[in-house]
């Protein structure tokens, strides 16, 4: 493999890894706080991507989609959370049954509204084509994704590590009861967390759409990867999800050029090994 090709695959992996990170961090925080196994989490990604497709088809404006789709999904999630709350106290098996059902409903509704075929989404006008760095040539849109997601990650890091809301969330991952004793309104925290997690995941769907297109089963695939990253990084860990996402993205991207199935086998072997050896994840709190 030439150096340039390898470099291309690594940078591709970073972009995909950042998208994975944004899917996983929502799942991770929601699970850490609510102890809620949400199989329908992939649906936020799916809906985000399809909203992007619809808005770009209707208006031709990608930036509108980038702003509106996460907002819309976040608001819907915020409104829906009090209803979803009934599931938190159920045993894991029933949480899985219910959210599996929800995921199915959303996926089929997407097929009903659009159709089962995959579709392409054009990158925004200013970001089509490639950027040149000497002999290294790279698509502009993918570069934008890396820069943009890095900025989002920085904002998120500030939110989680430097604000009162973040402190409450971190305490809540340890024990929600303690948070309640401090006189904090948990139900608002739940709604907000669910909405933020959903919006981030929808945002990753929007960003992924011009790279990989949209198709109705993309949510299932994303969910599976997100679980791997949450486990590898450690439940509730920001840096863990970031490191896990980038690691999986790069490994997958580089390995795909030699042995695609092998990449997936390795990823799940790594997931199993980490649960067996370091159940709190590589960077999780023990």
């Amino acid at each position: 493999m030439s150096v340039n090709l390898l470099l291309t695959q690594i940078v591709n992996g970073l972009g995909i890894g950042m998208i994975y990170f944004m899917i996983a961090i929502g799942l991770s925080i929601i699970f850490g706080i609510m102890h809620f196994i949400n199989i329908a989490h992939g649906a936020f990604y799916l809906v985000g991507a399809y909203l992007c497709y619809a808005l770009v088809s209707a208006t031709g404006n990608f930036w509108l989609a980038l702003a509106l789709a996460p907002l819309a999904v976040g608001v819907v999630a915020w409104l829906a959370e009090p209803g979803v709350r009934r599931l938190y106290d159920l045993p894991a098996s029933l949480q899985i049954l219910a959210t599996l059902g929800l995921a199915l409903v959303i996926q089929e509704a997407v097929i009903l509204i659009f159709d089962p075929l995959g579709k392409n989404v054009a990158a925004p006008a200013g970001l089509r084509g490639a950027a040149f760095f000497g002999s290294f040539v790279y698509p502009k849109y993918r570069l934008f994704v890396i820069v943009f997601t890095a900025a989002v990650a920085a904002v998120l890091w500030f939110l989680l590590e430097r604000t009162r809301y973040g402190a409450v969330l971190r305490a809540g991952t340890e024990s929600m009861q303690t948070v309640e004793l401090l006189g904090i309104d948990i139900s608002r925290i739940f709604s907000l967390t669910f909405a933020v997690g959903a919006a981030l995941t929808a945002l990753s769907g929007v960003l992924a759409a011009p790279i990989r297109g949209v198709e109705p089963f993309m949510g299932v695939e994303a969910l599976s990867i997100a679980f791997v990253i949450v486990v590898i990084g450690g439940i509730g860990s920001f840096t863990g999800a970031l490191a896990g996402g980038l690691l999986i993205g790069v490994v997958q991207s580089v390995m795909t050029t030699f042995w695609a199935a092998g990449a997936n086998i390795m990823i799940y072997v790594a997931m199993a090994l980490i649960i067996l050896v370091r159940p709190h994840g590589l960077l999780g709190r023990a």
Binding site: F31, I37, A92, S224, F227, V228, V231, W259, A261, G262, N264, I265, Y268, V269, M271, A272, I275, L276, P279
Partner: peptide
């Protein structure tokens, strides 16, 4: 069964996906 609860579920998920890709490969 080295683990319990959610970690057991995640382990079976990982093993299942591993087996799928092995069969695929």
């Amino acid at each position: 069964t080295q683990r319990t609860g959610v970690y057991l579920i995640m382990l079976t998920l990982a093993l299942s996906q591993m087996f799928f890709f092995l069969c695929y490969a």
